[in-house]
């Protein structure tokens, strides 16, 4: 049991690191727990172009290095562990960790973020790492001069399709609707790219291949017509799934598993706050995660003051 803390932050992405910066400056005794090296999903992003202050854009990894350096200047020493449960003891919270350790604190900020959502079709799980990927910056270079498919129509799908044309000779962008959801500037780039072929109104029903991806079976949702596209890789960007398995039955979650909060990041438990992509909200961006993190840390500080009073 580790006691004597004011605040435990679970997760070291943009929201968690920002919360740490604010909490440390408020001189709260703060411990940040992170399963991996801090950084979060942004580490997978080749280029961040919508975070203010970087007019030329910046790589996701470099932006996170800067967040981390700022947090380290304020004493950050992240604990490399995984939160597996949250329970209450009086007005204190116990954060249970994968190593068996337990952290005791009156306030907790949940900033565990999210990971890629799976398609849930035959072949997907079996062929993950063998042509099925959720990270274009990681795996794109293995598909030099091949034909690949991207599934999705949002910002990530469209941005990564353009990125993949650096390696692949052709990219099919498979989307279940007849128009993209991605922001306009990204759409314009994709439409202008001769290597991208759009496959509209279509869903993937199966990923084909024995020990490596050889194709995808797709179905037109308007005509029910099925056909097979021969591809060596399938990159899936159909949204995200929050990392909240460890909070089921503990905090109020929405139907997608995201944590429900008010505008001040308060969850259904007093003293527990949520920030970033893990929270139920409509705009999931680095810049909104950062705002959430600052608000959550400030609210934790106020909560601690009121608790002492």
């Amino acid at each position: 049991m580790k006691r004597g803390l004011d605040l435990v932050i679970v997760g070291g992405g943009p929201a968690g690191l920002t919360a740490y910066i604010y909490a440390a400056r408020a001189r709260l005794r703060t411990l940040l727990v992170e399963k991996f090296s801090p950084g979060g999903q942004i580490l997978n992003t080749d280029r961040v172009e919508n975070y203010p202050g970087f007019p030329e854009g910046i790589s996701g990894a470099e932006l996170m290095e800067r967040f981390l350096a700022q947090a380290r200047n304020l004493g950050l020493e992240p604990l490399l562990d995984e939160a597996t449960g949250l329970t209450q003891d009086g007005d204190l919270y116990l954060v249970h960790l994968g190593s068996g350790e337990t952290l005791v604190s009156p306030t907790v900020i949940v900033a565990t973020g999210a990971g890629p959502r799976r398609l849930g079709v035959p072949g997907e799980r079996e062929l993950t790492g063998k042509g099925v990927s959720y990270c274009a910056t990681c795996d794109g270079p293995f598909f030099r001069d091949e034909v690949v498919a991207v599934v999705g129509g949002g910002n990530t799908a469209v941005q990564e399709s353009v990125f993949l044309t650096r390696f692949a000779r052709k990219v099919y962008l498979i989307h279940r609707r007849d128009q993209l959801r991605a922001t306009r500037i990204l759409q314009e780039r994709a439409f202008a790219n001769p290597k991208i072929e759009f496959v509209w109104n279509s869903v993937v029903t199966e990923i084909l291949g024995e020990d490596r991806v050889q194709g995808v079976r797709i179905k037109n949702v308007k005509t029910d017509e099925e056909r097979v596209l021969e591809v060596g890789g399938v990159f899936i960007f159909i949204g995200i799934q929050p990392h909240t398995e460890w909070l089921e039955g503990v905090l109020a979650l929405d139907e997608g598993g995201f944590i429900i909060t008010d505008a001040e990041m308060r969850t259904s438990l007093p003293g527990v706050f949520a920030a970033g992509d893990v929270r139920a909200k409509s705009c999931r961006q680095i810049v909104t995660a950062v705002g959430d993190g600052a608000t959550a840390a400030y609210m934790a500080e106020l909560y601690l003051l009121e608790r002492k009073a």
């Binding site: 991996f36 942004i42 910056t137």
Partner: peptide, 13 residues
């Protein structure tokens, strides 16, 4: 590889 975010993420592990 250096350009792989998740690779950096698991490096300390």
């Amino acid at each position: 590889a250096a350009w792989c975010g998740p690779c950096r993420a698991i490096a300390p592990v």
